[in-house]
């Protein structure tokens, strides 16, 4: 076990946990956007800033990428931390000014408006969708492309995401509503990935509930595939 200090209190943590995880486990609030408990740490939104003192050196850093280490002293509420978070939040708000989740977070920090002209397409480049697709689903349908100010999320060649199975994980995890999914008859559309998928209807209730691509993906990936008629019924009717 590792022992560390957060805001003058001592905490214990398991090897491999990050400062952010230890804080959240213990009910200490640190604002964050690109962190998700089931995904690898990314450190892109820069919101979860804390000050860490280690070997008598204090640095401002993101808590989601900093491993919990023995003896480190973490401060989550110094003037420097607050200043950094506020300004980063203002930058994030300029990227997705209409997203309720971003607005709420900004408001909590006392930011009502950004001084910058909204530059955005509503995507804050947090990479949750990309990591979810890679790490949770394993479909590798979308990726970050280009760099610097041009960086964006898109399918290969900015064409239809051929690997997308329409599972909707990216849609659910997106904090700004940048990605959306539409159901039209027996089709599911994810406009951002230029993807349209044929859906299978439940044999009992008739509701389209899973794409054929997802069924094929599951049958291919899973070690012990379910019986062939498993996907005849939706989860409600099964």
């Amino acid at each position: 076990m590792i022992t560390l200090w957060i805001d003058d209190k001592q905490y214990e943590a398991a090897e491999g946990r990050t400062i952010l995880q230890v804080a959240l486990d213990n009910g200490i609030q640190i604002p964050h956007l690109c962190y998700h408990e089931n995904l690898s740490s990314f450190g892109g939104c820069r919101l979860c800033q804390v000050e860490v003192t280690r070997d008598n050196k204090t640095v401002l850093t993101t808590s989601c990428t900093y491993p919990a280490m023995d003896g480190i002293i973490v401060r989550t509420d110094t003037p420097k931390v607050k200043k950094a978070r506020r300004f980063v939040m203002e930058l994030l708000l300029s990227l997705a000014p209409d997203a309720p989740k971003i607005q709420d977070l900004a408001q909590e920090m006392g930011i009502v408006a950004t001084r910058f002209t909204p530059a955005g397409d509503n995507c804050i480049r947090c990479g949750l969708c990309v990591r979810a697709c890679d790490e949770l689903v394993g479909a590798h349908a979308i990726t970050f492309a280009h760099r610097g100010a041009q960086r964006m999320v898109e399918p290969p060649f900015a064409e239809e995401a051929e690997n997308c199975i329409g599972c909707g994980t990216c849609v659910q995890i997106c904090p700004t509503g940048f990605i959306s999914m539409e159901e039209q008859g027996m089709e599911r559309k994810i406009g951002k990935w230029k993807r349209t998928l044929k859906m299978k209807a439940c044999a009992k209730c008739g509701r389209p509930f899973i794409s054929f691509a997802e069924i094929a993906f599951i049958m291919d990936k899973v070690k012990n595939p379910p019986p062939a008629d498993w996907f005849d019924y939706c989860s409600d009717c099964r």
């Binding site: 890679d134 590798h140 349908a141 970050f144 280009h146 760099r147 290969p156 060649f157 690997n163």
Partner: peptide, 25 residues
């Protein structure tokens, strides 16, 4: 060429997304 990237992706077992990311980075 796109076809070359797809071929490499299959042969090396690397996702096409990764090759596309490199090509644009």
């Amino acid at each position: 060429p796109k076809t070359a990237l797809s071929y490499l992706s299959g042969k090396l077992g690397l996702p096409l997304t990764r090759l596309y990311q490199m090509a644009t980075f």
